[in-house]
Design a protein around this nucleic acid. Structure first.
Length: 383
DNA sequence: TTCGAAATAT
DNA sequence: AATATTTCGA
């Protein structure tokens, strides 16, 4: 009973349910004063409550995007509310608004201006930022985000949603159906989150081999794009995105090979390949025994699909010069059409670098190690 | 709608 | 530290 995979389906993940609900918690002294039901039709879910302590518990469950805290002036009356507000402002996952009876310029939102409250909520939903009007005064005026970033922040809430889907599966403690206030709180979210969760693809050797096979075929035609690869692989469990991602990494690997190859060649004239290169330079993995895929588990260590040393370039330093002529230089492999176009050169190595010190550095390092490890590529990729 | 680089998440 | 996912401009 694993989780379902909702792959390929682009529609709503849950029929009849908007892809994203914006949930607001309004903490007000008198809940009856604010009626947000009109918002429900628009996909907002506003929960009211009177007890700041309860509010904190709810908000910690990451079930809300926005919190509105009623700040009132009774002496000693709203200390808890202030604390709540202060806390909420410090929460990266929350947009906090102070609301109050009095309209203070640049102060809390005016509770009596109901439309303005709604506007603020919608503003968060659409941009993920607080509206400027909602900026608070006083010591709690610490905006989480500024309007400057507004434009680029559209995925804000959606990302929060997604994060929630994969994390926080077990905060069941505060999951009660009811508040003290008698306010109903959506409890299904956790279950839904489970449903939404997409399985992470694990690229087993088998899968990778399949990928490489398809990729090689298409590479020959200069058409190694995710869609085509996927089509060739005929694997319904994969998405185009999965392929694109793996392809990105695969290409980097190839560049790593090409880069090392070029480097060593340029440093000393006498580099040679084994005369029998694997069928495809782009698939160092075709040979060698494979682990039983079913036993392969995702590890934190590099995924080595196969024995890469197979294609390692030999160094002349350790070689008998006389054997040189017996070996055939591997002709340059045009891995990527247009790769030598300086405008879009994808090989991030010293080949076209005019930084001589860098070049020497790299050469020196590589020289020390006749058999550079696979990780050498990280010398070039600026990480 | 797809690609692919870059940013993020795990 | 590497792999996988997601975003986002083109």
């Amino acid at each position: 009973m694993g989780h379902h995979q909702h792959r390929g389906a682009d529609g709503p993940l849950v029929p009849g349910m908007p892809p994203m609900l914006t949930r607001v918690l309004a903490v007000v002294r008198d809940t009856a004063r604010l009626d947000f039901t009109s918002l429900h039709q628009e996909g907002y879910h506003v929960t009211r409550c009177t007890d700041p302590a309860v509010a904190v518990a709810e908000l910690q469950g990451l079930k809300f995007h926005v919190v509105m805290v009623h700040i009132y002036s009774d002496p000693g009356g709203c200390g808890a509310a202030l604390e709540l507000l202060k806390w909420a402002i410090g929460q990266p996952h929350l947009c906090a608004y102070a609301i109050s009876e009095k309209a203070v310029p640049h102060g809390p939102l005016d509770m009596n201006d109901f439309n303005n409250l709604i506007k603020a909520i919608k503003n968060v939903a659409s941009s993920g930022t607080k509206s400027p009007e909602a900026t608070l005064n006083g010591p709690y005026n610490t905006p989480l985000s500024t309007t400057a970033s507004r434009v680029k922040n559209l995925p804000f809430l959606e990302r929060r949603e997604r994060r929630k889907r994969t994390k926080q599966v077990c905060n069941i403690g505060d999951q009660e159906l009811e508040h003290k206030d008698g306010e109903y709180v959506a409890k299904e979210q956790e279950k839904l989150d489970q449903e939404f969760k997409k399985a992470r693809v694990i690229w087993t050797n088998e899968l990778h081999k399949k990928f490489v096979k398809a990729h090689d075929k298409l590479l020959a035609k200069g058409d190694d794009v995710p869609t085509k690869i996927l089509a060739l692989m005929k694997d319904s469990t994969l998405t185009r995105e999965n392929i694109a991602s793996h392809l990105q990494k695969h290409r980097m690997n190839l560049e790593g090979e090409a880069c090392r190859y070029n480097l060593r060649r340029s440093h000393s004239r006498t580099k040679h390949h084994r005369s029998t290169r694997p069928a495809s330079f782009s698939s160092p993995n075709m040979a060698s025994p494979q682990q039983d895929p079913s036993t392969i588990v995702q590890s934190r260590s590099p995924t080595v699909y196969d024995d890469r040393m197979e294609i390692q370039v030999q160094t002349s330093n350790t070689m008998d010069k006389s054997s040189e002529s017996a070996l055939v230089d591997v002709p340059p492999v045009e891995m990527y059409p247009g790769a030598d176009d300086p405008k879009q050169n994808r090989v991030p190595c010293v080949g076209n670098s005019d930084d001589n010190s860098l070049r020497e550095n790299l050469s020196e390092i590589l020289n020390k190690d006749p058999e550079p490890s696979w990780d050498d590529k990280f010398l070039f990729s600026g990480q």
